[in-house]
Design a protein around this nucleic acid. Sequence first.
DNA 1: CGGATTTGACCAGCGC
DNA 2: GCGCTGGTCAAATCCG
Length: 511
Amino acid sequence: MSQDQRDLYYHDPFHDDQRTSETLFPFLGPNSGIRDDSSPPNHQRFHDYMGLTHFFNGSSDYNSQATTFGYSSSPSQQVFAFQDEQKPVMDHGNLEQAKEERRNEGKKENQQKGVSEDGGDSSKKVNKQKKKDEKKPREPRFAFMTKSDIDHLEDGYRWRKYGQKAVKNSPYPRSYYRCTTQKCTVKKRVERSYQDPSTVITTYEGQHNHHLPATLRGNVGGMLYPQSMIAAQGAMMASGGSSFSHEFLSQIPHGFYNSGGGANSARPNCNFTTSLTQATVLYFLDPSEFLGIDFIVSNVEYVDTPLVSYFLDSYDESDDGEVVNDIYLNMEYFNIQIHKFSERDLAFHYLIGFRKFVAYFDLNLSVNIITRKFLNNIMVNQLASRDDNLVTIFRNVHVFVGSFTYTTDFIVFEDIGKSIESELSKAVMGKPYKDLTHLKKDYSKGLISFTNIWDTYIYQMPHMVILDKESPIWDALGRKARELGSIQKELDKDKTFQADDSHSDAFTKCA
DNA sequence: CGGATTTGACCAGCGC
DNA sequence: GCGCTGGTCAAATCCG
Ligand SMILES: [Zn+2]
């Protein structure tokens, strides 16, 4: 059994590549705002973030936990995906898990029968006539496996526990939750893995029929803050926070938000954080949104979200190898390190799975990099070290920023000290991510913005950058930096943070 | 108090 | 039908 279980978790990178690409990222749901997709081409899976940004917002306010985030200690976790399918077959075996799932599928839920109607006698309301017998086609489910000490992971939605049962052969119980939003029938189960007690398995069923629990608690904001905008701030800015959002937002021209306009306005994908207190509150994407009818497969599978490809062990001539070599060169070439409190700091909070981290941007870096150890902290599957500093390439890593979801690749290194102080972060986002997120920045204001087709998120960087045009930093940064400087001048003239195309382009050029 | 959780009773499938 | 089991209900209980 344990072996079967292993199959569950472990997927051969090479063989799975293909399949996972389809099953792991079935983001394009039928009601996806993005049309024209009926069939997401495979080749799009990687850089087409538009295809995957389907999310909901979840509001969440568990600041408490947020305050401790950081790239440090917390026991990280991980995630993965999953999914379940309906078509039988393919069982790799048996994993009782799968079986269980399947069995469940067979059943339906009969949720509240509501009725009863005592009809007369039959004591028990056996009356199962249940008119129209809600067949309830069993919604597909899919699970996330996360390394965590906490059983019930925050995912942005409000849940009400409605049951708990002992799991067969497991010392850990399984809890049942239902979305608290009226009329929403989404459910989820949470249980700790028997095989690996360090991980929690969260299985979702159904799709939310609402946008968010609108729990902007404590906020005042409901009124004046545009839904499509998010102003979050970094932990280090916590203290001065309260004045931030207000002040900042007041500078934003009306046309900016709601850029999505019409059709999109109907689906408020984002929430804004009130961040009046401290840590940035990040939202989690709704896993159920990942489901697409076209992707219903068969039983449940648990897969690490990021696919591991040990290209070095395979063929030197592979594309991956080439890419990496190219990258390697860039790494060598790039020798400016990000130091703590450096003016070059461009950081933001992001999320991999359910865990929040801090990442830095290095706009001169041609790739996204991350350390092996860090990944091992997050992943269930552990990466072995190699002789080389270059470990592997991780594809399709989900990175959540606010309610935005991006899928990008990371080059895994044993040590990324050349690019950033190890204490600062274990990951540095480079150009790929910058392009993917349409990153824009405003050094003077210490803001970073991410944009997808519908919305824009604006984050306050952990460190406000004091721009000094005479600073030697510019020399170090080279031409790019100068470009930035000139743009900065423009910005200084125009205090307003505009979003019109012309400006966007200017911003974009920065990187 | 209102909302969330706890917890044993109930229920529907399934294998036999 | 019987017993087992995952899943649900709902009354009692807890909690801020
Ligand atoms: Zn819901």
